[in-house]
């Protein structure tokens, strides 16, 4: 092996990590608000390049889990380990956005904020950046509307705009919190195609979803969450009728199965570590 140039080490390591490694590790993770746990004793690993759906009844802690991953919420117990990347590099599409849609800003300027990691608050956008912004807008099917203010968009179009911004963030890990709630099927179809593309590009995508048929059709992996992990594996296994019933039971009883004697759940089998 010849002498390595400065910087080669980083690229080599990056490549290595993408090839066969773990991006995210939960270890006995408990997350919650005011000491009321919303996610309970979750352990498991997410491999780099995984396309994972998080499914579960209302109040199961799905959104809480994403908040924990992105660092908005500190674990009450246990840990979330993000391996080989910083939290700021995560692209996170929240369910309830703080986006003020009445703000007078064009689609172009709004989507450009996706390049914040690269250009920050003060650097001038390059010509190449401009082309990437336009390409992202075209990729979500809004070409030609670049100068339209976001206040004039429909809910579906607004979600397309937010997806375009996620695209520009060029993130190794993408978190989507109910990305298709309250939007038309056409938009959902187009956006799901983008998610497939991100997966093909080797990015790790974790989506909180409600539509079981969509998960079965599109996602190689599913985590069924009802405060604690009920099942984690391929959708056909994880979302079996038996597991779904169990999840609903846990959600309705308002107790986790381990509530009476609070101990860590046994570690899940690691079969879900797909390449």
């Amino acid at each position: 092996m010849g002498r390595r140039l400065l910087g080669d080490f980083m690229t080599a390591r990056h490549h290595h990590e993408n090839a066969a490694s773990i991006l995210l590790r939960f270890d006995n993770l408990t997350l919650g608000y005011d000491r009321h746990p919303a996610v309970h004793h979750l352990s498991g690993e997410v491999g780099a390049g995984t396309l994972l759906a998080v499914v579960g009844p209302n109040g199961a802690g799905k959104s809480t889990l994403l908040k924990g991953i992105v660092g908005e919420l500190r674990p009450l117990e246990g840990s979330i380990e993000l391996i080989g990347m910083s939290r700021r590099k995560i692209a996170y599409l929240t369910q309830q956005s703080t986006l003020d849609a009445s703000f007078p800003i064009s689609i172009l300027d709004f989507v450009a904020m996706g390049l914040w990691g690269e250009f920050g608050a003060f650097r001038r956008f390059s010509q190449g950046a401009r082309q990437r912004i336009e390409a992202a807008i075209a990729a979500v099917g809004l070409a030609g509307l670049e100068n339209r203010p976001i206040g004039q968009l429909s809910g579906g179009q607004l979600q397309r705009v937010r997806f375009a911004r996620v695209m520009l963030q060029d993130a190794p890990l993408v978190l989507l919190d109910e990305p298709y709630s309250a939007i038309d099927t056409n938009t959902m179809h187009d956006l799901a195609r983008l998610v497939r593309r991100w997966h093909a590009e080797g990015r790790t995508v974790i989506s909180v979803l409600h539509d079981m048929d969509h998960v079965r059709a599109e996602y190689p992996q599913a985590l069924l969450l009802a405060r604690e992990a009920i099942a984690w594996g391929t959708p056909s296994e994880a979302l079996s009728a038996e597991n779904l019933l169990k999840a609903r039971h846990v959600a309705e009883s308002g107790k986790t199965p381990t509530d009476t004697v609070c101990h860590a759940a046994p570690p899940l089998p690691t079969e879900h570590l797909l390449p």
């Binding site: 992105v70 996170y92 929240t94 914040w116």
Partner: peptide, 9 residues
């Protein structure tokens, strides 16, 4: 226009 996004990035 989107404070939580700013705080994230």
């Amino acid at each position: 226009c989107d404070p939580s996004y700013l705080n994230h990035v």
